[in-house]
Design a protein around this nucleic acid. Sequence first.
DNA 1: GCCCCAAGAATATGATCAAATTATCCAGAG
DNA 2: CTCTGGATAATTTGATCATATTCTTGGGGC
Lengths: 228, 228
Amino acid sequence: MRPPNSQPSEASGSGAKAPAHETVYQTLRKQILFGDFAPGQAVTIQGLTGSLNVGMTPVREAIRRLISDGALVFQGNRRVSVPILCASDIDELKYARKTIECEIARRATSRVSSEDILELQAIDDALDRAISTGDVAGYLAQNYRFHTVLYSHADAPVLTDLADRLWLRFGPSLRVVCGRFGTQSFPDRHKDILEALRKADSELAALAMGRDVAQGMEQVSLGLDEGN
Amino acid sequence: MRPPNSQPSEASGSGAKAPAHETVYQTLRKQILFGDFAPGQAVTIQGLTGSLNVGMTPVREAIRRLISDGALVFQGNRRVSVPILCASDIDELKYARKTIECEIARRATSRVSSEDILELQAIDDALDRAISTGDVAGYLAQNYRFHTVLYSHADAPVLTDLADRLWLRFGPSLRVVCGRFGTQSFPDRHKDILEALRKADSELAALAMGRDVAQGMEQVSLGLDEGN
DNA sequence: GCCCCAAGAATATGATCAAATTATCCAGAG
DNA sequence: CTCTGGATAATTTGATCATATTCTTGGGGC
């Protein structure tokens, strides 16, 4: 009678069957994650209904979800905007990301197959190409993809969900940094992670992930000082 | 208990200023947190519009936020229900809570004043009374209050927001355990936390918080085996 | 410089359409 | 004759839109 555990994760996959509010949410999510919106930028409902060709109800629901995610902030006076991070926010994000994403990496280590590692390797190669060609959008996309693909093998839905939300908080700010300094200055810490995965050394993977996260947050705080 | 992205401010006013969707969200949030909904129970929009005397749009927005919080789950077929936790979910929640709430306790230690400690002491006394009288609702409320009041002094909005959301995930399941076994079996670990705060020993506070969290999650997993 | 008014945007309701679950009924087998 | 199974109808619920209302805000008048 009771169907077993149903995973509600399936969101953007099927496409045509997805409700409008889900589509709008995924669209805005990607746009925020990859920096199509600048920190501090105002987000209006009616502006989105026009550009996305949907009614205001789906837009409202998507915005509520994003506010709850921390991807947008509700500014009291019915205004919604992209958050501007302060130094202590970044510090907290750094701690949260390190503890959560290190644990995910730890759990993923024992579960990834060699095919999975090859896939991650391919993503990292694409990331290298994006860096060398100065493709900021590609860098952000592949970097995010590397993490999400790795996390998908950790069999840790709660932790993965937490990590995903944290990314939404610093996405816009990270984009600002990349746009300002380019992609050249980013050393690729993913190599160490891949090496740890090949060795099946979970503690080493956690350590490498911690360094990657620390470096990413360092970049974000770098852009903060310039006053976005 | 003040996530950065919630109510503008003003808890003093008689309240006509709060939007309906915010009121609905807070109401449902408390009901979920204190176990008015059972794990697995279906939550319908139209059922809520009737019981709360509001239109469906505010209810929809509140439900979207709660889904994003992890307090409700969206099952593929447009249905929304209270989540049923499995063993691995509880394990992940335990890890996340320990790392996050320990850090919050660590940060709060250097910031709490003696008056704050007295307030926490008073809450803990009320919690003791609730335990001795078998007042399950009071136990849940005071226990939650102890943590949120402590966290409010940590000056860590991001981490506090994360912790708040984690509580929403196991609230219903915790209530089931309390209803089944009563309140007698719960040793009060808050005494150690208070002692660490008085000594201004942040590491000790983090340690005590870790034990408190571990014990709480142990209780939740206890109720799991009985098959809720 | 202050106050009032208008414009625009967000909030909230109800109606309408679509989808899914539930209930009912009929047919066939035992 | 009864029970089981499947298919269809009916009801319940969710999704979307159009519209009215309320609130914020910015500008013009005094």
